[in-house]
Amino acid sequence: MAALFWESLIKSLIYIVFLLTSFAYLTLTERKFLGRFQSRYGPNRAGPFGLFQPIADAVKLLFKEELIPAQADKILFILAPILTTVPALVMLAVVPFGGTGQLFGRQFSFSIAGDINIGVLYILAIASISVYGIVIAGWASNNKYATMGGIRSSAQMISYELALGLSFVTPILLASSMSLNDIVKAQMPVWFIFYFPVGPLSAVIYLIAALAEINRSPFDMPEAEQELTAGYHVEYSGMKFALFMMTEYIKMIVLCVIAAALFFGGYHGPGVDTYWWLGPIYMFIKVFMLLFGLIWIRATTPRIRYDRLMALGWKVLLPIALVNVVITAFAILLFPGLGSG
């Protein structure tokens, strides 16, 4: 038992450090790629190829003055960034980054929380907490722009959670399990994205809904710079602001990790059965490809308008997701081999 505890602790530590580093370098990657998309260089001053840019950013933000507006609700104002960051950090606890590995003669699994049989529900539950952080941030700032951003985001996140949840159902049905480990294992020969038509459809719904869920372009309504200046975090500065940015980027990573696990075969790839350490590498490659897609989207699309976004969520995505679930269920009934996992 004690050994298990230590194992979990070490894994969490590695995982948190890894996530924070990858967040930092994701910002750099994004800026670099955006730069290349827009025929410019991106950051290249701090260190070779601008590699120290995230460190410079962090140092700058750490030394910035922490402003709290005079009429802000101080407790909530400080609580809000914490409330947004923590869910983003713990969300990945159930995702398997690899199969079982062997190190120092010990078997261990790659997911931090072990193999929970309600992994998918856990993700949904945690994901919905972070909306509180944003709403509270908007409200506590006592700023009209921030409040509008907070209201927009709560409406947006709540409406897209339905489509998001429904897009999870297809992989769950196909694997007949809610455990992410089982879902990944069920994709051993064929990834779920190739289960035509339900697989690709639910993957697309997932990606759209998840983009809206994490307020990422083109659904970055709550922080629409051009309309609401910066939305819910307009009054935040210094590290509190950094926490919001951190949440946004960590959520990007989380989105891609979950997409990889649900639709793109997770840690699977050739040779993973023989060499367990290939699992995380495959996972990393898949996540990176998806992240690249997100950056690409940001570089090309205009922002969708707020009312159109709600219409898209309720009138398009939700019905399609429902139909998709029904089709999947019928397909599994008709071809019993499908849903065996």
């Binding site: 955006l34 827009q38 970055d220 710079e225 051009q226 940001r298 699309t301 205009p302």
Partner: peptide
């Protein structure tokens, strides 16, 4: 105009 709609790349292409 494009940047106001968050199509940021167009802005940089135009300025080029």
């Amino acid at each position: 105009h494009a940047l106001d709609m968050a199509a940021m790349s167009v802005f940089l292409y135009c300025f080029r």
